[in-house]
Design a protein around this nucleic acid. Structure first.
Lengths: 107, 107
DNA sequence: ACTAGTACATAGTAACGTTAAGTACCGAAT
DNA sequence: ATTCGGTACTTAACGTTACTATGTACTAGT
């Protein structure tokens, strides 16, 4: 099932991370931990950092560097206006897809 | 939203087509029509044919050629045992992902 | 002949998530 | 003093997916 989840996450993992950022700003390492709490136990750190680069390049987040007492400086991501719009569209698409799939399932 | 749907479909379109095949065997052109009926109006024919090649190579379907009165011979796809197993795992993964996302949404 | 509908095929592309390896900073244990 | 584990970020190479664009081919109607 791991392989299936991998492919299924394509296009949704981004929305998942953005959704996490709506709660409060967070940095990469924190986000990976948050994902594990949410049940996504098999997502590697590298996956998240690569994804964060992408959403940064798309201009969906603002970035601020803050020192850490326990390690290297943190890169804190905050969802900006563009990111909120994007997330809304993500939920719209998700609602549509979810509806279609549940309809297909009931046969 | 079109771009978002495109990315979101990755990993799920395959399951959608397999789900359609559980109802009854079907050929490519028929499946694209069925998808339009299901609300997926923006999926091109080429996309489906390429996908059908993949699920064939994965051994999830059996294939039979039948003549058509209205055009070239049809290639009818039937979900086999391996395909049914695969689809079950797909639904399992989907249920998990769906649950996680809905949980994230309620904040 | 021409068109429209039916039916399938495929090379090239962009985007995504994964893998694997690396850097760097800190505190505590050995 | 050094090793070890936890914290924190980076990136190149890779496999898979869906999309685009284009092509072939068969039939019936005009």
């Amino acid at each position: 099932m791991a392989k299936l989840m991998t492919e299924m996450l394509k296009g949704t993992l981004e929305g998942i991370v953005l959704a996490i950022l709506t709660e409060k700003p967070a940095y990469g390492y924190e986000i990976t931990a948050r994902l594990r709490d949410e049940g996504f136990t098999e997502i590697a750190e590298g996956t998240i950092y690569a994804l964060l680069v992408r959403i940064e390049q798309k201009g969906l987040v603002d970035i601020e560097k803050r020192p850490s007492e326990k390690g290297p400086p943190r890169k804190v991501f905050t969802l900006n206006a563009s990111g909120h719009t994007y997330l809304e569209e993500f939920w719209t698409a998700w609602t549509f897809l979810s509806g279609r799939l549940n309809h297909l399932r009931n046969d």
